[in-house]
Write a protein that binds this DNA or RNA. Structure first.
Lengths: 226, 226
DNA sequence: AAAATTGTGTTGTTTTTACAACATTTTGAG
DNA sequence: CTCAAAATGTTGTAAAAACAACACAATTTT
């Protein structure tokens, strides 16, 4: 099947065989499309008729608020999903922009077909729904984690807590962030230059070290968090 | 069935008949317990073996961070659910405190039984899973909404955006908040006295008005948000 | 390889926030 | 109803953040 090697790596179609996938392809009205770097894949406010899966490349999710300010919600990599919540809530508009940060191959699924398992025709549809659920709950967890970050009193605590989280996830005190400094400031909803100052101070104090997107957090910093 | 009038009002058992409920009761190992006001229903860090449903009364969800600071996550009312995400992610610890803010009647369900529909025995189990999913997606949406609030640059914008949201939800420019000023400050992660000052200023400018938990947002304020 | 664009760190200034202290009001328990 | 506890609004001060401007570095484009 076309692009199956990428499809099987996605969170939603994990554990699905090529045969089963074939059976579902028609039912889910699967479509594929390529996007060039820096092009808009989904525009905030447009009718949300499809669930979007990133098969190759990378993208970012952005939100434009009523003041026109743009904030970076998150970055997506191959296998990640966009617009799932809409399906379950029956919401008819995408609430964020999806922008290709690299050349992308994108898969579209009909959102109505996705959540209502069809009789007989496609066998493993129930497993897909279960996978979907997992994706949503994981996002839920990520959102709560970010919420805790943004609830911190000052930039210093936000940064330390974020680096601490990422370090835990990487399973090492050395780790890479998906963001450059400008993006990190945006992600943490703080001023870029203020973030830069804070990072420099933390480095000066020997609590952290960093180079480009590569970071190291010292044990001493962990202690500060206890 | 015991407490069925409350159970059928919950989000998870919406549309379930008393007969079906009866059939599920054993399978889900349903238990009931009463809690007095200001007592701890669930303690952060304890083993998460059950999903908690508030049948009567009110409760608040709090999180204690590594610094020992307590933040108010949300308030629950009759019919609301706690600890569902744990079930899906197979997480073994509750990540927040659940505290009764009034005398409560609480229902506990076995988390393992909840997400794995049992064969034959309880008929409408699949509908329950669907309801659960809806609950999670709705919470997801609420989390994203709060995230957008906390991303705002200053208290003024946070408050205006929050009041705007609540006004939309209420479908009127007059509405009640579930929080007093102290709790609102906590919810928005800002200093209480700073919030108080901001609210006073907004009232002085004629953008909003309020008395206790009752608020009114003026059209002028809406315009500021465009 | 050169040029243009974007990212980064630093500094000084202005604005906003947190913090602390207090008087007053409201709430809730007995 | 009374009294204690909690919530609220206000003020002044200290701390932190946002903002703006800039030089330099890194990256991307051509």
């Amino acid at each position: 099947m076309e692009n199956f090697s990428e499809i099987k790596k996605t969170k939603i179609f994990a554990e699905i065989s090529e045969n089963d996938m074939q059976a579902m392809a028609y039912c889910l009205k699967i479509k594929f499309k390529n996007y060039n770097k820096n092009t808009l894949i989904i525009e905030q406010g447009q009718p949300a008729e499809e669930v979007v899966i990133l098969l190759k490349g990378g993208a970012k999710v952005e939100n434009i608020d009523t003041f026109g300010d743009i904030s970076l919600i998150t970055k997506l990599k191959a296998g990640d999903v966009f617009g799932v919540e809409n399906s379950f809530l029956g919401e008819t508009q995408y609430k964020d922009n999806l922008v290709a940060t690299e050349n992308c191959l994108v898969m579209f699924l009909n959102r109505h077909r996705l959540i209502t398992p069809c009789e007989n025709k496609c066998k493993r549809h129930d497993l897909v729904v279960k996978n979907l659920m997992r994706v949503i709950v994981e996002r839920n967890k990520a959102l709560m984690e970010k919420l805790k970050l943004l609830s911190k009193k000052n930039i210093r605590e936000k940064v330390l807590a974020y680096l601490h989280n990422q370090s835990i996830k990487a399973g090492s005190s050395y780790f890479d962030l998906p963001y450059n400094k400008t993006e990190l400031a945006n992600y943490l909803s703080v001023d870029r230059s203020a973030l830069s100052t804070t990072l420099s101070k933390l480095r000066e104090e020997g609590l952290i070290d960093f180079d480009k997107k590569h970071y190291h957090i010292n044990n001493k910093a962990f202690e500060k968090l206890q």
